[in-house]
Each structure stands twice: as C-alpha cells, then as structure tokens.
Simulated assay, not measured.
Amino acid sequence: MPSPVQRHPLAVQTADILLERVRSGEWPLGHKLPGETTLAAELGVGRSTLREAIRELAGKGVLDPRQGAGVFVTALDAVEEWDAVLRRASIVSVIEARIAIESEAAALAAERRTPADLRAIRRALAERLAHGDTVEPYVDADMALHRAVVVSAHNDVLVELFDGFVPRMRRVMLDMLRIRPVASPEADHAEHAALVQAIAERDTRAAAEFSRAHLTAMKKAFT
C-alpha cells in the first residue's frame, strides 16, 4: 500500500501520488477509483484534500468525477501546458510541426476558401511585399499571410495550433533575419505568390507542395 502523504501542500502531493498510480497502470484507462472515504484513508489525507487533488487532475484531463457514479480515469498522463512544450522544443521541431499543419491547411484552403478569404490572403501578400525592407514589420506581415492561409482552411483546430507557434516563430525569425537577411527577396516573394495563386485556382496539390517546399527550405536553414 502506498505510504501516506507527509509533506505540505497535501493536495498537490496527493495529486502527484494519484497521477503516479495512474501512470504505473494500477488504474487503467476507464477504471473507477476507490470510493472517496477509502482512498482518503489509504493516502492518509482528509476528504477535502482528496477532492482538491481530484479537481486538479480533472483539470489536466486525467480524472473525470461523475456525480453519483464516482471518479474515472480518462487519460494515462497529465497534458503538459502547450507553452511549456513549445519553449522546450527545438526550432527545427517547431518548423516540422508547421510543415505538417500548414501544408494540410494550404490544401484545405485551396478547396474551401471563399472570395473573402482570397481577398484577405492577397491583401496579406501585398503587405508582406510592402514591408520587405524592415525586419519586424516584415516578419509580422509574413506571419499574417501564413495565418490568413490557415484561416481559409476553415478548421478551428488548425488555427489554434498555428497561433500557438506564432510567438516562438516570431522571435526566431526576427533573430535570424537580423543576422542573415533573405538572400533573394524577389524569389521569396515569388514562392509565396505561387502559393496564393494555387489557392486562388483551387489546386490543392500545388498549394500543399508550395507550402511544404517553403517551410522545408526554412528548416534546412536551421540544420
């Protein structure tokens, strides 16, 4: 039997012990935890402390308290905060994730874009070109163009994922461009214009390929 919780704060430690038991496989996915009275006594804590620990793990998606039914295991580990994951991830990992997300988003944008979407994408492309000689506005305009493409895919999950990358990517792009400016702004603009044209023509394959090629070239610059 696990040893009782000894140190403060009790609720946090209780949550940690519960999570360890879930991770160890003692309570598999879908399993119902022992009753509140039994579990509190087993851990050596009060029922209010146990409830607080369960609330914490419920907030992380691990446990699901169901009124009148009990507490059930709904995940085998706590979901780490997205910002923390991105802070630790290498820039290459972030670009690889962008390739997966944006190439699919580009294909969906070519399929689903509305006339209003296309106007927004073209405005963003023009803004990007207009700010080509100043680093910070250029990076912001570049991000705005890529976001306009993702928005045109009409998939809220893809937009949410892309928005999660923006702060990290913005900092990296600013640093990179200050050290090493774009070798050929004309060629770079032509690549983005080709992506926009593929979306305008509803060419899903070409849109995905242009998006993938651009981001793959960016990845190579970091490797």
Rank of each mutant, 00 (worst) to 15 (best):
M1W: 05
P2I: 14
V5L: 14
V5F: 05
D16T: 06
I17K: 12
G25N: 03
G25I: 08
W27G: 02
L29I: 06
G30Q: 08
E42D: 08
S48P: 00
T49G: 07
L50N: 05
A53R: 05
I54W: 06
R55L: 02
A58I: 06
G59F: 03
G61V: 01
D64S: 14
D64N: 12
D64V: 04
R66Y: 07
E80D: 06
E81P: 07
E81A: 11
S93Y: 04
S93I: 02
I99H: 05
I99R: 12
I99K: 03
A100M: 10
I101V: 03
I101S: 03
S103E: 04
A107Q: 02
A110P: 03
E111K: 13
E111R: 15
R112D: 07
T114M: 04
I121A: 06
A126K: 11
E127I: 02
T134I: 10
E136T: 12
P137C: 11
P137L: 09
D140H: 12
D140Y: 01
M143K: 01
S152Y: 02
H154Y: 10
D156T: 12
D156Y: 00
E160P: 00
L161R: 07
L161Q: 09
P167H: 14
P167C: 09
R168E: 06
M169V: 15
R171V: 00
M173S: 11
M176H: 12
P181I: 06
P181M: 06
A183M: 05
S184L: 08
S184G: 04
E186I: 08
A190N: 12
H192S: 08
V196F: 04
Q197V: 04
A198H: 05
E209S: 02
L215E: 01
T216S: 14
T216G: 13
M218S: 14
K219R: 15
T223C: 01
